[in-house]
Each structure stands twice: as structure tokens, then as C-alpha cells.
Amino acid sequence: MPVHNMMEDAVRDLIDKQWDNLSVSCHCDECKTDVFALSLNRLNPHYVRQQSGSAYVKADLMTEQAKATLLTAIVECAKVVSAYPHHHRKDIK
């Protein structure tokens, strides 16, 4: 019985589109993954088990209000990851 959290797709897509515009102290893949995971932990999941269900959820997540909610969570999580990165890079000033 496979299920899928549609929120993962929505957050991943929005992070991919906005990553270069976010004020993050580091743009490495590790920090990007941390922002992704932290964002998912702050947002409500939207699980589906069939393709037909995913169309309804995807439509709900494409509204301007939903995009604003997702982007707000991503920006807040990017600030947290910037303040407390899980790695130390010598090229960060």
C-alpha cells in the first residue's frame, strides 16, 4: 500500500525555484537538504495513495495562498539553517 506525501514535491519544487534568491549563508546541497527537511517538519503533510488523489492535492498546493505559506516556511527555515549550519565551511565569511 504505497502512499506519498505531496508536500514533499511542492516544497522541493519551490526550494529549487527560489534557492538562489534565498538569504542563506551557504548554498551547498547539505544546507539545501536541511532547509527542505526543516520546512517539511513545519508544514502539514498531504498524503495520497492514488494518482487521482494527487491531482486534487496538487491543485490545492498551487493556489497563491498555499505558495505563500510554503515560501514563508522555507524562508524561516533558511534563516534557521543559516544561523545554525550543520557543517563548517572555510569559504564562508
Rank of each mutant, 00 (worst) to 15 (best):
H4C: 02
N5I: 04
N5M: 10
M7G: 01
E8K: 15
E8G: 00
V11G: 06
V11C: 07
D13G: 06
L14A: 15
I15Q: 15
W19Y: 12
N21G: 01
L22K: 02
V24Y: 01
S25R: 14
H27Q: 09
H27G: 12
C28D: 03
C28V: 01
E30Q: 09
E30A: 14
C31I: 05
C31Q: 08
C31L: 00
T33F: 06
D34V: 06
D34Q: 11
F36V: 02
A37D: 11
L38G: 01
L38T: 09
S39M: 00
S39G: 11
L40K: 06
L40T: 06
L40F: 08
N41D: 13
R42H: 15
R42K: 14
R42F: 07
R42C: 15
R42L: 14
N44V: 02
N44F: 05
P45S: 14
P45H: 04
P45N: 08
H46D: 01
H46N: 13
H46C: 03
Y47P: 04
Y47V: 03
V48T: 13
V48K: 00
V48C: 02
R49T: 08
Q50K: 15
Q50G: 01
S52K: 06
S52D: 13
S52L: 03
S54L: 05
S54G: 05
A55T: 07
Y56A: 05
Y56T: 09
V57H: 03
D60T: 03
L61V: 05
M62R: 09
E64W: 03
E64Q: 15
E64K: 15
E64I: 06
Q65F: 10
A66P: 03
K67R: 15
K67Q: 14
K67C: 08
K67N: 13
A68D: 03
A68K: 11
T69D: 13
L70D: 01
L70K: 00
L71C: 08
A73M: 00
A73N: 01
I74W: 07
I74E: 11
V75Q: 15
E76M: 04
E76G: 07
C77S: 14
C77V: 07
A78C: 10
A78T: 11
S82P: 03
S82C: 13
S82Q: 08
A83H: 08
A83S: 14
A83V: 02
Y84T: 03
P85G: 02
P85I: 01
P85C: 09
H86A: 12
H88M: 03
H88V: 10
D91Q: 07
K93N: 08
